[in-house]
Amino acid sequence: MSQRYPHPSEPAPEPDSALLGVLAAVIVALIGGVVYGVVGGTFHVEISWAAVALGFFTGYVSGKAGGANPVLQAAAAVFSIGGVYLGELVIAALITSQDLNIALTEVFLSHSGLVGETWDLLFRDKFTVLFFALGAAGAVAGVRKGGAR
């Protein structure tokens, strides 16, 4: 019984696991959202290229993990919007924490209403929609780049 090994010139079979790609998108969006929030909170601004980067990396890792499955474009776009929103909430929490001179964990656990009010005052405008759209567009481009083999 001889086992046939693929010839080096033959392409390896493509993994196509949408579930793995979606899971990767969730994890990267969460981590990226926190990083985006910390960077933005440090400088007290939204950063457009950071929203694009968050979306792109969410999509890219999702495409690498899940292959060229078209479902991943939509999933990565949705989760990147969630990541950008999480990042903006972290920015709002950092600003609230600094303004009130209380610990960040206390802001999240005991004063979450203030975080929402700060987000409404600082980020609820036409640019927020733009940042969500930039993150989603970056995610779609990332899936296309990461899923192409």
Rank of each mutant, 00 (worst) to 15 (best):
G33A: 02
S2F: 13
Y85K: 08
N69P: 06
G37L: 06
A29Y: 05
R149E: 13
D16C: 11
I95T: 09
G37H: 03
A133N: 03
L130C: 08
W119K: 10
F123W: 09
S48Y: 04
Q98E: 15
W49Y: 14
V78M: 07
V107G: 01
F79H: 05
A77F: 00
Y36D: 14
T58P: 02
P11S: 07
T58H: 01
I47F: 10
A137P: 01
L114G: 10
A74C: 07
D125A: 06
G67E: 02
V28N: 00
L134W: 01
K145I: 14
Y85N: 10
A18L: 06
L121S: 14
F43W: 14
H111K: 07
A93I: 12
K145E: 12
V52Q: 00
Q98D: 15
D120L: 14
G55A: 07
G59M: 01
F127N: 15
G147M: 11
A24G: 05
A50V: 11
F43E: 10
S17W: 01
G83I: 10
T58K: 08
V22Y: 00
L72H: 02
V129Q: 08
F127I: 14
V26M: 08
K64Q: 11
P11M: 08
V129Y: 13
Y60I: 06
A68D: 15
E106Y: 12
V90D: 05
A103D: 14
V52G: 08
I95C: 01
V22F: 04
A103Y: 03
N69S: 14
D99A: 14
T96I: 01
D125V: 02
A77P: 10
Y36G: 11
L114N: 11
F127T: 15
H7R: 07
A137T: 09
W119E: 09
E10S: 11
L89E: 07
Y5M: 13
L114W: 06
V28I: 15
G116P: 04
A29T: 04
H7Y: 02
